[in-house]
């Protein structure tokens, strides 16, 4: 589904990623762990095509096609979703309105009939239940005044509505209380199937108690230095990262 080959990424003329190789097959869940500043979010931003994250070498393919020339919204429409580490506030823009615009953009892309306001409300309310979110959040402006955990739940809600094939979860678990963590994990597990893949970025082994990654990667200084099974996360928890640094 996603294939990254020898990816080099520069931000403001500084190389942050130095040769990433990563292959995620349909239905797989991969986790990336690594110290602050090692380049995890940079990798997510490069995959989703954010401005100023310049690919200087290598390639990213999604469903066997290079996406490097695609605009960020085209990548999103093609099926790549990112749950933001720091979700953005958009003052004055109603959360439901925003979500409907996003879902309808996708429907239009697929040549399907777009939702009107009433049917969309029904649709989104069914999804709200899955993340145990109160309907009052729909009436507020996008992420405005949301607590850290509420923002993350809102990201999860967007994921469920947009039905991406590849979901990148950039520290969606950070800052969640135990109940919220369980809800999000349940959401991920329920959503995952043979044709949907996840790339989960996390600092905590506790998340991996609830979800089952097929592969765990360790990112240090812009390189994947080790990949392994779930037990690698436990090892990191115990020993830290220093034993892996060269």
């Amino acid at each position: 589904m996603l294939e990254i080959n020898n990816l080099h990424v520069e931000v403001e003329n500084k190389e942050i990623l130095s040769g990433i190789d990563l292959k995620i097959k349909a239905g797989e869940m991969h986790a990336i762990m690594g110290l602050n500043g090692s380049g995890k979010s940079t990798l997510s931003n490069a995959i989703t095509g954010r401005e100023n994250y310049n690919v200087t070498k290598g390639d990213i393919t999604f469903k066997d096609e290079s996406i490097l020339e695609m605009e960020p919204n085209e990548r999103a429409l093609a099926g790549i979703f990112m749950s933001f580490q720091y979700p953005t506030v958009i003052p004055g823009v109603n959360n439901t309105y925003f979500l409907r615009a996003a879902v309808n953009a996708k429907k239009k892309y697929r040549g399907e009939k777009e939702y009107d306001a009433a049917t969309f409300l029904k649709f989104v309310k069914s999804k709200l239940k899955e993340v145990e979110m109160d309907a009052k959040y729909l009436k507020r402006a996008v992420n405005e005044g949301f607590s850290g955990g509420e923002k993350k739940r809102n990201e999860m809600l967007q994921l469920l509505c947009l039905e991406p094939e590849l979901a990148i979860m950039d520290e969606t678990d950070s800052g969640l209380d135990i109940d919220a963590l369980k809800i999000i994990s349940r959401g991920i597990n329920k959503y995952k199937n043979n044709s949907r893949s996840f790339l989960v970025i996390t600092h905590y082994q506790r998340l991996l108690k609830y979800i089952e990654p097929d592969v765990v990667h360790v990112l240090i200084d812009g390189k994947i230095v080790k990949s392994g099974g779930k037990e690698l996360a436990l090892e990191l928890e115990e020993k830290g990262y220093s034993w892996l640094e060269s």
Binding site: P72, A76, M82, I90, G92, F98, A101, A102, A105
Partner: peptide, 23 residues
């Protein structure tokens, strides 16, 4: 970028953000 990442194109995103600003 947040709007783009949700599949909303830039023109629509600009008018959405500006309308929010004027709310």
């Amino acid at each position: 970028f947040y709007c783009n990442q949700r599949g909303i194109d830039t023109e629509d995103a600009v008018s959405m953000i500006v309308n929010g600003f004027c709310k």
